[in-house]
């Protein structure tokens, strides 16, 4: 079985996000990137599948230079192959363009399963996974928390989350694209020395193509949420705050 995992670099929200002078994008110099959380879970799920079946996992990392680091981490965690897909910052978050761009690379790899996060933090159009599935003519289901592949390798049974803690159990014909919500186990840890070893020794294939021009959605204005709807902030040290809070709760008959 061949599994591809798509890892995207998205703005790290631990660092303050600064809006650029054009009022429509993020200031490049201030940005730091992190692998999209859902994609990390997709990688974990792929590695879990690898531990259960004879599978090879290809990490497909999309972004700028920092996407190389994500590949090293993936290889350190157990991915077998590394494919780098460079795209300019301006095209991040344009999943229509990205899906069309990635499709030939995925097709030529002959994968049975393509996993990625169901959602990306900087996503403005439709999710990458669903769009990619159309480009590949594969079926797609997302929002998954578990994936099991039948021994014959032509079907997968998946758990899809619904509101209210319900789970839908579904069967999907392979090859397929799956959108992972969270992996079955907490993410594994790759030590720094394993990552640096991977950086030195991994063979990174680079995918080059021309980004298709897709008429998508245009951001006309990017803003920080207004402060107008802000909570009433309680002042003072922890003891003062606790006191005020208990008074508020008591006034409302909650204690």
């Amino acid at each position: 079985m061949k599994i591809a995992v798509i890892l995207r670099q998205v703005p790290d929200v631990v660092q303050e996000l600064v809006i650029a002078a054009d009022g429509r994008s993020l200031a490049k110099d201030e940005l730091t990137y992190i692998t999209n959380e859902g994609d990390e879970h997709a990688l974990e799920e792929a590695l879990i599948l690898k531990s259960r079946h004879a599978a090879t996992v290809t990490a497909v990392s999309v972004g700028g230079d920092e996407a190389r680091d994500a590949l090293a981490t993936a290889v350190a965690k157990g991915a077998d192959e590394a494919l780098l897909v460079s795209i300019p910052l301006e095209r991040r978050g344009d999943n229509h363009g990205l899906a069309a761009y990635l499709a030939p690379a995925i097709t030529s790899g002959g994968y049975d399963l393509v996993l990625t996060g169901v959602w990306a933090a900087d996503q403005l159009d439709a999710g990458l996974a669903g769009l990619l599935a159309v480009q590949l003519s594969f079926p797609y289901v997302g929002g998954l928390t578990a994936v099991a592949v039948e021994p014959a390798g032509n079907r997968a049974t998946v758990h899809k989350e619904f509101p209210g803690g319900r789970l839908g159990v579904m069967e999907v014909s392979l090859p397929a694209v799956l959108g992972i919500q969270s992996a079955e186990q907490p993410l594994r840890y790759a030590s720094v020395s394993k990552i640096s070893q991977a950086k030195r020794t991994m063979q990174v294939k680079e995918f080059r193509g021309s980004l298709p021009n897709v008429e998508g959605v245009h951001v006309s204005r990017l803003t920080k949420p207004e402060a107008s709807a802000k909570a009433d902030m309680l002042q003072g040290d922890a003891s003062r705050v606790a006191e005020t809070l208990v008074r508020i709760l008591r006034e409302r008959g909650l204690v």
């Binding site: 840890y189 790759a190 030590s191």
Partner: peptide, 27 residues
């Protein structure tokens, strides 16, 4: 180096330290 048996709380502290230079995941 074998990637096994690291309690997950500690793994999180490592990851944050590697990324942000502190174990709390602060900027």
């Amino acid at each position: 180096s074998r990637g096994v048996g690291v309690p997950s709380e500690l793994a999180t502290a490592f990851e944050r330290t590697a990324r942000y230079g502190n174990p709390f995941g602060e900027s």
